[in-house]
Design a protein around this nucleic acid. Structure first.
Lengths: 257, 257
DNA sequence: CGTGACCTTTGATATGGATCAACGGCCATA
DNA sequence: TATGGCCGTTGATCCATATCAAAGGTCACG
């Protein structure tokens, strides 16, 4: 907890001088807007945030955060999606979540990275030195408030995932995943079901799916085939799923009695 | 996400008038101190926080947050420990974590509770109306900063738990749990191993252990017996574990190769 | 259009942990 | 000290999913 205070102690002097900041630039530079994090920032301030960072473009399948390495930076994703995961020495892997445009990574107050992050497609992101965290928060206190909301929401999601990993069967995991993925894609409102027959892109390999759901690729494949055989979904191709009967999926996912 | 803005929109007018607040009272009233959340608050302010809440005493095994119910309050625990869990309609239960003195519960911006909370022993806590969240944060902005740190730390813990639930074997789960429990009790520094032969209270039933680790009580019992048989731990009684060889436990927990 | 690498699906078999069952220890109560 | 209920342990068996194996699809590249 010592490093915690170093980073977020509110008494820390402000290192960034906004009086000298550059003039406004497009908010598109700042992935934070995607999460509504910029709502309360002026264009000037958003431009400043964008300029305070190093802008990085990454190829697909690039590991840019490695578990165990020194935590020198935090990141804000501008475009593209990444997977977050933890690994065991023998190669077992658990994907703990996905992050897309607007997400912040590496904010936890630890000296080493507690997870790895790998791009799933071409990604653009902003990299900030962690020593500037306190200063950034000092300048943009509203960021803290919004980040707290985001963090609380992610805790809710990870609790759902713990229930899935600890107590659900393979078919329940797949059904749960399909519905939560639809929510993530905003195909339906949070907590609501998508309409029947909606199509959904699924840009994940079976390996990613298995590592996210705590299964093997064979079990993932079989479970999807079962759902298809029973007419609850259709699978026109590997990276597309049609949710034929969302209600039936939900009954399976929530183990309705 | 509409309710999110309702609660945390920084423009919301301040409803609490600190000018009229009561004079200082003991900080012991405020569980927040246990998490260092009060470090930056004056005794006056802490006393105010304590008075703004309803103080509640609960018997052991009382469910005071029920998943799915309207989320009317948030809570700050003063004394005692609680378990947080999610359930499926058929009775399967996943404990997602434990909360003790200083923890805040129910801060997520949702209209319904996303988990249940049940006391494990006599518990005292402060209950706040959720409609006052914005006002509380407005008066004590440092609270937000600290809560963000706490939330980030809990995300790290839940990622560890996802790895455990998704990819570890029964014996690895038990070994991981014993070491993380020692950390929680501050028997050892975060990330460090306890010294050999340290004794540790374990005020959890086998059922709680099973529901936390995604196993059955029989498998928990067998795994503990195995570790005992191999001389890595001793179990003088149900609610006490002696960590004879923490390094060996760690090798199992981390699947050292 | 053919080739090969990689990914997915499907089938056969193995196994870790769940389930079913019985027993034993502990504690509260009389 | 005896009794009953609850919890934990241990043993026997079962089953959901892992593992092993092979075949089929798809796509990039020559």
């Amino acid at each position: 907890m010592t490093s915690l205070n170093k980073i977020t102690d509110f008494r820390r002097p402000v290192a960034i001088n906004l009086a000298n900041r550059p003039t406004a630039s497009s908010c598109d530079d700042c992935g934070a807007r995607r999460h509504g994090l910029c709502d309360a920032l002026s264009d000037d301030e958003v431009g400043f945030l964008a300029r305070a960072a190093q802008h990085v473009s990454l190829q697909p399948n690039t590991v840019f955060i490695e578990e165990g390495e020194a935590a020198l930076y935090f990141y804000n994703i501008n475009s593209g999606n990444v997977r977050l995961f933890k690994s065991l020495p023998d190669g077992r892997r658990q994907i703990t979540g996905f992050a897309g445009p607007g997400h912040f990574l590496g904010l936890a107050a630890t000296t080493k990275n507690m997870f790895s992050a790998e791009t799933m497609e071409p990604v653009k992101l902003c990299r900030f030195s962690r020593s500037s965290i306190a200063a950034v928060f000092e300048e943009f206190p509203v960021l803290e408030r919004k980040l707290l909301d985001v963090a609380m929401h992610e805790l809710v999601l990870s609790q759902q995932q713990m229930l899935l990993l600890g107590r659900k069967t393979a078919i329940e995991r797949i059904a749960s995943f399909l519905l939560s993925w639809a929510e993530r894609l905003e195909i339906c409102a949070s907590g609501a079901l998508p309409k029947p027959n909606v199509s959904m892109p699924l840009p994940l390999s079976r390996t990613d799916l298995a590592d996210y759901l705590g299964l093997t690729i064979e079990t993932v494949s079989r479970s999807l085939s079962n759902l298809k055989r029973e007419g609850l979904i259709d699978i026109p191709n590997i990276h597309e799923i049609i949710l034929l009967r969302p209600q039936a999926l939900s009954d399976i996912a929530e183990a309705a009695v």
